[in-house]
Design a protein around this nucleic acid. Structure first.
Lengths: 129, 129
DNA sequence: GTCGCATGTCTACAGCCGTAGTCGATGAGT
DNA sequence: ACTCATCGACTACGGCTGTAGACATGCGAC
């Protein structure tokens, strides 16, 4: 069994992630706001969004703030942290922790466009400065 | 609901992935062989491995071949395909499909060692040749 | 003051995942 | 031939995930 994380370490599922994206895009949001942003794309109903939000609150990834009788939801973890965490997880799981292997994989599978290459080159130079 | 893939498109879970790694490392293997390779690290029992193997067979990720009364298990999908698929999934989900953003993220979070940078630089040059 | 609508909570339920036990069949040794 | 160890198949079960219905409650309009 995977180790159970502490405060912010709970795994965020795919559906929950969609809700997080909405909250990262703009915060705070009410449940209705979130539904406006995701119910179209995922064909969800309000109850579904409510469930996901409360699960996220339970997991500690989202915080609520009372606003009259309703809640305003705010993410407690930042997108960059989440993204960084997930990226490292992938690199560890599939590339033995070596980011260069990931890069090689992307290159080999021709997933890199000329723009990507140029951008990466630019970043590399920047890092070397 | 996520779309249900056809022949080889079924999602492979984390535990199943560990079994796949063993099979990618050497094939074909019997269930006992697989257990030898993973039961230590994951503290699994034989029945667990058997279950995972049959689920993988059901999902079409592993093929069996009779050998007397036992089975020899062989992966039907290659590791590089799986790894490429998962990488692209991550890039799509978290980086808007732009690999350069992934790279930027890794750089920013200081997940790149000097060796990684050198290696990536080398690969870049190679691609440009 | 009453009624309805908006909102969160609780409950539900099927399917997948992690983990494992049990059982029937079958090949191997005696 | 008989027994025993193996091996796969079937069954199990609690937890998580995706999805949603029912319900209580309380603000806002009249």
């Amino acid at each position: 069994m995977a180790k159970r994380g502490e405060a912010v370490g709970e795994r965020i599922s795919e559906a929950e992630h969609a809700v997080m994206e909405a909250l990262w895009d703009e915060r705070p949001l009410t449940a209705a706001d979130v539904c406006d942003r995701v119910c179209g794309a995922r064909a969800w109903s309000m109850p579904t969004v409510k469930t996901l939000l409360s699960r996220l609150v339970t997991k500690g990834a989202v915080r609520t703030e009372a606003d009259g009788r309703r809640f305003l939801y705010t993410p407690t973890i930042e997108r960059s942290d989440y993204v960084g965490h997930e990226s490292r997880r992938l690199v560890d799981r599939l590339f033995g922790g070596r980011p260069a292997s990931l890069f090689a994989q992307l290159a080999e599978s021709e997933a890199l466009t000329e723009d990507d290459l140029a951008e990466i080159e630019r970043l590399l130079k920047e890092l070397r400065s």
